[in-house]
């Protein structure tokens, strides 16, 4: 069990800046994120898109913003727990016991939810029958490609993941690539390669088709695909892979007993605490009168939530407001003179 002053759920810009503010006031924190990298939506949805409304930064990309925030909290040496998701939060004598999917446990007086619109999960096939094979022969990511050796693999999607895996697996498996339109959004070089492989009959390419059904007794045997004219085809398939990007889902947060307004958590604007003592919500996931879903609002919310955390983490101390320009204590924490 890891003891800390605060657990931050979500490593997007809001969570990162809240960590900075916790560090500035002398508190510790641990940061958990479901993605395999730091940055949240900024890195997952729009790493290259310029952002124009970060105060005093006329223009920066999601990736640049993330890198700067990481740099800004470096002095505090906080731990990140990536590829992991907070599953459960239980109150135990005034502290929160936070459990993750990977089995990590934290004991903390404060939980700061900076979860955006929830955690990123792969988008799944709309067909009900695919659920039966989910995780066994219907897959949305690949951990071990050797399982596909000499198998029939049907890959759905038109982005880089779909194209790259179709090319890669065509070396060891019989690959069909199915996409809903003629254009692909993947890299032009990959598209070119796919077309060549299709011409040589190494890959079976079906455009303007989407999934209709998956069938099999016990194990998966075939996948049925359809076009908009209602024509369908049946393909032999041992595995069906879907690469439709990621979707944000509120997930376990909905089960923590917090008040919810649509998909957002109502908070008070004094310290961004929720209806549960010691649980704060900041950034896109919180709501209050006048809420703006801007990164700059998330920064402000994180700064105030950090002060809210101080009260529970240091119940016997009085919080003293200090400026980074003037405080020697803060300069010590930052490791600057």
């Amino acid at each position: 069990m890891i003891k800390t002053d605060a657990v931050i759920v979500g490593a997007g810009p809001t969570g990162l800046f809240c960590a900075h503010q916790l560090g500035i006031i002398g508190l510790t924190c641990e940061i958990v994120d479901n993605l395999d990298k730091i940055g949240g939506q900024c890195i997952e949805l729009y790493p290259d898109k310029p952002i124009y409304d970060i105060p005093a930064v006329p223009k920066c990309t999601g990736e640049e913003l993330t890198n700067n925030l990481i740099e800004q909290i470096k002095p505090f040496k906080f731990n990140f727990h990536l590829n992991d998701r907070v599953q459960e939060i239980i109150n135990e004598n005034g502290n929160w016991i936070v459990k993750t999917t990977n089995g990590k446990k934290f004991k903390t007086p404060n939980v700061v939810i900076a979860g955006g619109v929830g955690s990123f999960e792969p988008r799944k096939f709309p067909t009900k029958s695919a659920e039966k094979f989910d995780g066994t022969s219907v897959l949305y990511s690949i951990k071990d490609k050797t399982i596909f050796k000499d198998k029939f693999v049907a890959i759905f999607g038109g982005g880089d993941s779909a194209l790259d895996w179709a090319i890669e697996l065509s070396n060891i498996s019989k690959v069909s690539l199915i996409h809903r339109r003629d254009e692909f959004r993947g890299a032009p070089a990959s598209v070119q390669k796919i077309k060549e492989l299709s011409k040589k009959n190494i890959i079976n390419l079906f455009t303007k088709y989407s999934i209709k059904d998956v069938k099999g007794n016990g194990s998966l045997e075939e996948v049925e695909i359809k076009n908009e004219e209602g024509e369908s085809k049946i393909l032999k398939a041992d595995y069906v892979l879907g690469f439709f990007g990621l979707i944000m889902q509120l997930g376990p947060i909905a089960e923590w007993g917090l008040n919810l307004d649509k998909k957002a958590i109502p908070v008070n604007t004094e310290n961004f605490e929720t209806n549960k003592k010691g649980i704060f919500a900041i950034g896109d996931i919180c709501t209050y009168p006048g809420k703006l879903k801007l990164i700059l609002s998330g920064f402000h919310e994180g700064a105030l939530a950090a002060r809210g955390c101080f009260k529970y983490a240091r119940p016997n101390e009085k919080y003293r407001f200090e400026f980074t320009t003037a405080s020697n204590t803060i300069k010590d924490r930052l490791g600057v003179k």
Binding site: P126, R180, R185, F244
Partner: peptide, 11 residues
């Protein structure tokens, strides 16, 4: 259209 590829049952 790239985003629509990822939507639920696009046509």
């Amino acid at each position: 259209d790239d985003m629509l590829d990822q939507a639920y049952e696009p046509n």
